[in-house]
Design a protein around this nucleic acid. Structure first.
Length: 807
DNA sequence: GTCCTTTCCG
């Protein structure tokens, strides 16, 4: 547009002859001659800057005093939110007639702010100008667009006072306003009160239902309008198609498509775009693409519908391909385009592509769009770049609730639970009220910290916010309680739920599994099979790992077989890994190896990893070496697997091989993640590393540990020094005795009252000697000790562990 | 001159 304005000199043929300085003004044009080029240019203006560019031309030709020009300029300035300039023009008009007031009001209502429109409306009433119907329709539209229910009601009241309550136009606007302000029942009430309803009124109520999540009602109203003797038009179609998508009824969507074809408007851009959207939301992405490809005319909404359709369907590659095609065709992306592209980058965890979209966004004029920036936060978080996300969050000029939620979720997903919780507190300090998304984002952070007291604290928040009926919140609570050691609380929440998602069942089954209650996991899985919700691929991972942790080999085998047979689910690499774990852990190393050889897909790292772990438990050097060599081919730089292999050698006292692996690690610069154990005490989480002496209570802790070790030795504890070499026997013992698990337990014993449960968390797998020692400690102290490690829970009580020493 | 399609955080 700006470039179209560059030659602001009118064409010579129409330009008035140049006048020497001091010559008298050109004669005023009669008002019907407003087709002067400058008037046309004004009509083309899309920004205030463009109007200002043309204004000198208007003045130069003495047209500024023309009534038509004044009206036009007023309309433009008020539309572009330039109230000062609008007031200037307005004041310069000598004889202000009603029409002038109406034009200005329209401008304000259509383009600039609702406040400006309302203020002007008040001025207009003060000037005793009689309002007309479309004053109200414009004002109501502005109220609806701003979701301003209070002013909407006010204007509705004034409309009634002025006697327009039987006017179809006015009442349609009222219906629309209430629907946009999410007062769909009130909208319906007004609709029912209308003395007569034209198609536009019907369309308004249909769209209202569709936009308020009442898809069935929207569909019902389409039937009613036909009973009323009217015929749905293209707008009806466009309004009701999102409702079909909402219901997920392809059949219904197709019948509307067919109607559109019969009625001859199926190929309109808006209808086709809505069809693309409907088909992709009804999981018929191929049909969506077919409709899209057949479109003769497409607008950016058509592209957005298709791109987002792919992104939502999980076909991120196709989404990005189409996004690039859109850019290639020179179409200007909108906020929705960018959001869909970012969504696809997040899904693929494609940071480089994500950065390119970010770059594009900076030059697109959408750089301060809150929704787009929220998507950017999500994209960086999913690509494991939470610091980049946090930078976006910090520099946003305005934030919405979604921004806070996205950032909290980003921290929670990236193992930064403390940052997630701090942000959750901060938003409340700023009086921003959390919603169900916030709670669902914070809960995994609490689960990560694994402190039951905090779990109850966040649950309390959910209750106070009245969000404890939300199925997503409840599912997150089930998962969290299980991960915080409160398995019975998880089940309690689970049992109160009237509706459950597949993820709800998965969380509970996995909870039983990680707590070593394999039989309960299988039982719940059977219950699920006869429930309305059917298992998915994740369900099988949960139940198979539950079987594995409890040694339920036959059950696991049977369940694995049902996967494909009963549910047509193709086992993934992780499922095969679970099966190898199940067989191998139970001692069937040969069977596990044969299972790997018979796999229909090329076995990957998770499969050999499970094999290696089983070899460690059952001290099988030969198969362990074979599994390890496969792993090092696939992933040469993982420290954890090197340590596992070296431990297998150590258990077999093959010290030269231990040294060889350690050497290899050193050469590759690999390190074993340092083991550490967390324990919470009075709102603070204490972290212990092996051998650390810089804790304030170190002296007391080591003294307590000495005392305890003596006690447990007296009842039969023998330190397992097998895996240590090259040092004297007493040093070996000393090394074992300073493991982080033991330090944390000693700390717990000192600082908690006798008889209370001690709960700790280890970042890696719990060590064999510590596991054994903890059993004895539970016996001699009469304490219950709950240990969460990387994989599962161990409940120690009266000298026994819930895992049955099988982990 | 009133009605409509694509949207971020589980």
């Amino acid at each position: 547009m700006a470039s179209a304005l560059r030659p602001i000199t009118p064409p010579p043929a129409l330009a008035p002859p140049a006048k020497p300085a001091g010559a008298k003004q050109p004669p005023r044009l009669p008002s019907h001659l407003f087709h002067h080029p400058s008037f046309l240019l004004l009509e083309m203006c899309a920004t205030a800057a463009e109007v200002r560019q043309i204004l000198p031309l208007v003045i130069k030709h003495g047209l500024y005093g023309e009534y038509n020009y004044q009206t036009k300029l007023l309309g433009l300035f008020s539309r572009f939110g330039c109230s000062g300039e609008a007031a200037l023009v307005f004041d310069s008009v000598e004889a202000k007639n009603d029409e002038l007031f109406h034009t200005v009001l329209k401008g304000h209502a259509k383009g600039s702010s609702l406040e400006a429109a309302l203020a002007f409306f008040t001025d207009m009433r003060c000037a005793r100008v009689r309002p007309v119907v479309y004053n109200f329709t414009y004002l109501l539209k502005a109220c609806g667009d701003n979701s301003d229910l209070r002013w909407g009601r006010d204007i509705h009241g004034q409309l009634v006072v002025n006697g327009f309550s039987d006017n179809v136009y006015a009442m349609t606007a009222v219906v629309n306003m209430y629907a946009k302000c999410r007062q769909i029942d009130e909208a319906r009430k007004m609709f029912d009160r209308m003395p007569e309803r034209d198609l536009v009124a019907w369309n308004a109520i249909i769209a209202g239902y569709a936009q308020n999540g009442m898809a069935e009602k929207a569909v019902e109203m389409v039937s009613r309008l036909q009973e009323d003797g009217q015929h749905p038009d293209s707008i009806t179609t466009v309004a009701v198609l999102p409702a079909c998508a909402d219901i997920g009824s392809l059949r219904l969507g197709k019948s509307i498509h067919a109607y559109g074809i019969r009625a001859g408007f199926a190929s309109l851009v808006n209808v086709s775009s809505a069809l693309v959207d409907m088909y992709s939301k009804c999981k018929a992405i191929g049909t969506a693409r077919l409709v899209f490809d057949r479109m003769k005319v497409r607008n950016v909404v058509s592209w957005n519908s298709m791109i987002d359709g792919y992104a939502q369907a999980g076909n991120a590659e196709a989404a990005l391909r189409l996004f690039k095609k859109l850019l290639g065709e020179g179409i200007k992306p909108t906020d929705v385009t960018i959001m869909a592209a970012l969504h696809a980058c997040a899904e693929l965890q494609d940071l480089e592509e994500g950065k390119r979209v970010h770059e594009l966004l900076l030059h697109s004029g959408l750089a301060s769009d809150v929704s787009v920036l929220n998507s950017l936060i999500a994209m960086y978080s999913k690509c494991k770049r939470v610091d980049a996300a946090s930078e976006v969050f910090a520099t946003m000029q305005s934030k919405s609730l979604v921004s806070w939620n996205a950032m909290i979720s980003g921290y929670a997903q990236n193992e930064r639970p403390d940052d997630a919780l701090n942000l959750f507190r901060k938003m409340q300090q700023q009086s921003i009220k959390p919603d169900s998304f916030t709670i669902v984002s914070v809960i995994p952070a609490v689960a990560d910290i694994s402190v039951l007291r905090q779990a109850k604290w966040i649950h309390g928040h959910a209750v106070r916010l009245n969000l404890d009926k939300n199925i997503f919140v409840l599912t997150a609570l089930v998962d969290m309680y299980a991960k915080c050691g409160g398995l019975h609380l998880a089940r309690k929440v689970f049992d109160t739920m009237r509706e459950r998602h597949v993820t709800t069942w998965n969380a509970m089954i996995d909870g039983y599994g990680t707590h070593g209650l394999g039989k309960d996991a299988v039982k719940l899985f059977e219950e699920m099979r006869s429930s309305p919700v059917q298992p998915n691929d994740v369900t099988f991972l949960c139940v198979l790992s539950a079987c594995s942790h409890s040694g339920l080999v036959d059950e696991g085998r049977k369940i694995f077989a049902t996967m494909k047979r009963d549910y047509s689910l193709e086992p993934s690499m992780d499922h095969y890994g679970s099966m190898v774990d199940l067989l191998g852990r139970a001692g069937g190393l040969q069977e596990a190896w044969e299972f790997i050889e018979k796999m229909p897909i090329e076995p990957g790292i998770s499969v050999f990893g499970a094999m290696l772990g089983a070899c460690k438990i059952h001290k099988n050097v030969e198969l362990g070496e074979r599994a390890a060599s496969k792993i090092f081919e696939l992933e040469p730089d993982d420290g954890g697997y090197h340590v596992l292999l070296s431990n297998i050698y150590a258990t077999a006292s093959m010290w030269e091989d231990v040294a060889r692996v350690r050497n290899m690690m050193e050469k590759k610069g690999l390190q074993k993640a340092p083991g550490c154990t967390y324990i919470e005490l009075k709102n603070a989480v204490h972290t212990f590393y092996s051998g650390m002496t810089n804790h304030p209570q170190s002296a007391k802790i080591y003294a307590k540990l000495d005392e305890i070790i003596d006690d447990i030795k007296a009842v039969g504890y023998v330190p397992d020094t097998n895996s240590i070499h090259d040092v004297e026997a007493d040093v070996k013992e000393q090394l074992l005795n300073t493991h982080s698990e033991k330090l944390a337990i000693a700390f717990g014993l000192i600082n908690t009252s006798p008889g209370s449960t001690i709960q700790i968390r280890k970042n890696l797998r719990v060590c064999g000697d510590c596991h054994n020692a903890t059993k004895y400690i539970s016996q001699v102290t009469g304490r219950e000790i709950i240990v969460r490690d990387m994989q599962r829970f161990h409940h120690f009580k009266d000298g026994k562990c819930s895992c049955g020493d099988y982990w």
